[in-house]
């Protein structure tokens, strides 16, 4: 290394794998301006618009009963869909990464389905299934159950849209880790459940957390699918994104941006958490230093 540094010293020499400086600078400048234009500016706009009429108006926008009910519904939906998808994601990853079975590639493809289908279409599927004129509509109605234009529909749509997140994060890591540690656990007398709990899960815990963070962010922010099934009933079936849309359409900009700022804050928190977790994943797979934080 010292010799290459010495060769660098005269100034105009370049490392063999380095681009000329004008290329590097223009690439950096392009990326930065792109980021500012499409990410930073909108974020700033959200907060300035929200606080345009002072903190009092901002607070009033958030604490309005309909806004509050939208927040509560969103928390409920997230509280149901994220744990469900955590369990599903772990089960699917374990099956796919550690076992051989018929139809495995089909299952992998199906897990990606919600990414491939437009959220609006996903919503429509549920309307066609559970709506009053849908396949199960009459049957549900006979039992007095309402799915579409009610909370269950919102939950269903969110679960569907967010179910790939945990599985997609965990499957590649589990596949990379192979099954040798599990085999070792079995020869040491551990049961299947103990093996999963003490060996498999701790090895993927950061990937699981990463998946949960992404799943959570998407569940809170989902608009398309939820919009189709919710019916936009104020104070009842509106989640935060739907409520923002309604306020905006009513020209109530301050309240709209105030509520939107909650989602923007969530995005920031998610980004920070994601970065921290990513570092952990990187740490535990490549570094010689072990992860010292025990689950």
């Amino acid at each position: 290394m010292t010799s290459s540094k010495q060769r660098m010293a005269p100034g105009r020499m370049m490392l063999p794998l380095q681009e000329p400086s004008w290329v590097r600078w223009s690439l950096t400048a392009f990326s930065c301006s792109f980021l500012i234009l499409f990410l930073v500016v909108p974020l700033v706009v959200v907060f300035t618009e929200a606080l345009r009429k002072g903190f009092g108006a901002y607070w009033a926008g958030i604490t309005d009963p309909t806004a509050w009910s939208a927040i509560k519904l969103t928390v409920l939906v997230v509280g149901i869909s994220v744990p469900l998808n955590l369990v599903f994601g772990l089960a699917a990853s374990w099956a796919i990464a550690k076992f051989e079975f018929w139809g495995k590639s089909l299952l992998i493809t199906l897990i990606d389905l919600p990414f491939a289908v437009s959220p609006v279409v996903s919503g429509l599927i549920f309307v066609l299934l559970f709506g009053i004129h849908g396949w199960f509509g009459t049957w549900l109605d006979a039992w007095g159950l309402q799915v579409i234009f009610a909370v269950p529909g919102v939950v269903l749509a969110t679960v569907f849209v967010t179910f790939p997140f945990v599985a997609r994060e965990v499957i590649p890591l589990m596949q990379e880790q192979g099954t040798e540690q599990e085999q070792a656990a079995l020869t040491l007398g551990a049961s299947g459940w103990q093996t999963f709990w003490y060996v498999t899960l701790p090895n993927v815990r950061w990937a699981v957390l990463y998946g949960v963070i992404l799943c959570n962010a998407r569940a809170m922010g989902e608009f398309g699918a939820v919009s189709v099934v919710s019916g936009h009933i104020r104070g009842k079936t509106n989640t935060i994104p739907l409520h923002v849309e309604i306020l905006y359409n009513e020209y109530n900009f301050v309240a709209a941006f105030a509520v939107a700022s909650l989602l923007a804050l969530l995005a920031l928190v998610t980004l920070v958490a994601k970065t921290l977790v990513e570092r952990r994943i990187h740490f535990s797979t490549t570094s010689l230093e072990p992860t010292t934080v025990e689950s």
């Binding site: 020869t187 007398g189 049961s191 003490y198 701790p202």
Partner: peptide
């Protein structure tokens, strides 16, 4: 008898230690 009841000690080529 399944693996876990055979009372065998198995040493793997690539150690298979629990790294966490």
């Amino acid at each position: 008898r399944p693996v876990r009841h055979r009372e065998v000690g198995f040493v793997f080529q690539h150690y298979a230690l629990f790294r966490h």
